[in-house]
Design a protein around this nucleic acid. Structure first.
Lengths: 220, 220
DNA sequence: TATTAAAGTGAGTAATCACTCATTTCAGGC
DNA sequence: GCCTGAAATGAGTGATTACTCACTTTAATA
């Protein structure tokens, strides 16, 4: 699967809203080069060259270089929070009035995000770099986080707290610990040390165990 | 404390190896702007302007813009791993042939790195951004990690494993879990959400607890 | 006070940048 | 084969880039 195919899948593009072939090549090349050397030090001429396209063609489809970046990066932001937003996911946990246990929820989330990361390494690299410098992106993240992720997560956490499955920490703290552990794992796995020989199944299991034990109420 | 003063402290500059006043202003301005908008999209003319210095002065002290970056970033890399390398720290743990317990070691490390991060936010932002694009920096990290950090950590881990204090995971996994949790905390605290109202003491305590429980062998 | 080397200057340079636009190519309907 | 609008082109534009260099200022010492 090429970068563009992953990107297309991300966009959920059907055959009606397809990009031009040349546009496809532009997005493909831009993703590659942005993730290799960063947005700021990538020139539009280089993108055009790698895409096999005239430089003018880029600006026929995207008014500015930044608009091209945003076209690439925007859909990723939405999809990052999806497992928390998606009705199917929430229902899966609260189905039939019964709750799955914490471990099952955690495993579903980690496996889901693992596959997502695996398919979108270059896109995630770009997002990770560029969020730091574009306040619009930061605002979108904060909005999605506050409006979509936090409220759902609160529900989970307070429920599992009542069940005595997790410690009585503030929900923000629980969320921070879980998310940094998961993101830390994915970043180590796919960005910091992608070439180490990973036993993915075992590492996922250990990461889940670590989080579960870490949050567990201690028996005296 | 200004950025430069933190940087000077980092360099352990004594009065003999001081930079010229203008050079000081250049480094100071560069740290500020690099961390605000990134190395690639910072121009030397802008650095000169903020430093209150002619553009030529920058190139009298640093052959290239990249050399200026490296002069700023290099010492940070070394200092990041210091708690693992420093003889005093190692001795502190293995003093008198007796080992401190895991919690004490962990707390010492976290508090130490917390204070370091607090003092060096802009520098850490620059490093975090630029490691991704400069293989020399990556190589230096990998070298320090493999030669200095890992061997010492192995000693700690195998000792605490024998004591039954931590799970029988591969040392790399234990290291990954501990480090990503700590880095995740610091990044959240100082970079992602620096303006939230943090109860630092409580969060440090909870983070330590989380790691300890997470790695603890489970009692059946 | 004269000498000297280092520090500092800023106008100048070639290269590269994102972006424009007049022109050409392409593809589908008649 | 002709028409038409969209897609694609690439030479051209002014602005900005990192870096140079001939020159001036500074400060310490002889």
């Amino acid at each position: 699967m090429t970068e563009y195919e992953a990107f297309k899948e991300l966009l959920e593009l059907d055959d009606q809203e397809q990009l031009t072939p040349k546009q496809r090549q532009i997005v493909q090349a831009a993703i590659e080069i942005f993730s290799e050397k960063g947005y700021a030090s990538t020139s539009t001429s280089e993108i055009a060259k790698r895409a096999g396209v005239a430089e003018g063609t880029i600006f026929r489809h995207y008014k500015t270089k930044k608009e091209l970046l945003m076209a690439i990066v925007s859909p990723v932001i939405t999809k990052l929070a999806v497992p928390f937003i998606a009705q199917s996911f929430v229902k899966q946990v609260f189905r039939d009035g019964e709750h799955k246990d914490f471990e099952e929820l955690l495993r579903a989330m980690i496996v889901n995000r693992f596959e997502f990361a695996k398919k979108n390494v270059p896109l995630l690299k770009i997002v990770l770099q560029e969020v730091a410098f574009h306040p619009e992106l930061q605002d979108r993240y904060k909005h999605i986080f506050r409006e979509e992720v936090l409220p759902h997560f609160e529900r989970f956490v307070s429920h599992y707290k009542e069940q005595g499955l997790i410690k009585d920490y503030p929900s923000e703290t629980v969320l921070r610990l879980v998310i940094t552990t998961v993101i830390g794992f994915l970043v180590t796995r796919f960005i910091v040390m992608p070439d180490a020989d990973w036993d993915d199944e075992a590492e996922i299991d250990r990461t889940i165990d670590y989080i579960l034990n870490g949050l567990q109420t201690v028996q005296d």
